[in-house]
Amino acid sequence: MASATEAVVLGTRAESSDSRHLRRILGIVRRQPLGVFGAIVCVAFVVVAFAAPLITPHDPHIFVGPRLGRPSYAFPFGTNNLGQDVLARTIYGAQVSLVVGVASVLLGTVVGSALGLVAAYCGGWVDSAVQRALEVVASFPGLMLILVVVAALSRPRVARDVNLLTLTWELRVVVIAVGIGFIFATTRIVRSVALTERHAPYVEAAIACGAGWARIMWRHLLPNVMAYIIVGVSVTLGLAILAEASLSFLGYGVPPGTPAWGTDLSGINRQFFLQAPWLVLAPGGAISLTLLGFNFLGDALRDELDPRLRGR
């Protein structure tokens, strides 16, 4: 009987917890409609990238249609100078953006967070060394730094019809080049938050209990700066996608022929923009929409997760 009562009580608790979550989500939807829109765009972007082979009407490499064909039922976004389907290329272009965006932000976030935590926790000359080194890197204009890294490590080569893991490996130079740019910003954010947390009572208590520096950083500091990291990731993902598109637009990203939004905005396509504006509208629109999505999502996450903004 007691157990039955317990079950009823627990059930009630679970129910109330579910409804709390639901209410909270509905509250977020009401408070952050643009954030929700951004989240939908971001999810759609990821789904499109993963499901590209399943949802594209044509192979993006094959010359399936007439040269510079106008948008039609068969080719809703038209065709390019080689008769390739612009819709298929735009869908497949999401793969490059996703791979570079996620991998480079992951790189920048992991390295930047680690450096920020170490600098904040250790302080002294370690902090100074990390800060000065990163300031040197940050003194380069972002795009120039990316170009220098790509020039030093050589431009990527991309084979046709590869899966996302292989694509990530083949685009490693672009990932590194773009990711390096995010290390400085992440380090600064994480360091500034961790410096405050470093002297919090729970950290002092952990030290008093004999916890090692690694445990303190991993188990105590990191969870408390995670909200800031998540907000940073959502914002920088959009920037990473833009950086990749800029790099490809300049001809230093993925090689020609590989479907990528930046590449499809440059090269020979640029010479047909006046005659075939659909060549610019599709990849350009995809870049804009995705950036908008990540920006809205980032703003919403910041509003929800940043304690200073919470409740405003």
């Binding site: 490499h61 080689l82 020979i268 010479q271």
Partner: peptide, 12 residues
């Protein structure tokens, strides 16, 4: 432009 397109055609 000419060279890059030619390579794509060969690739295809």
């Amino acid at each position: 432009p000419r060279n890059n397109q030619g390579m794509q055609i060969f690739q295809q």
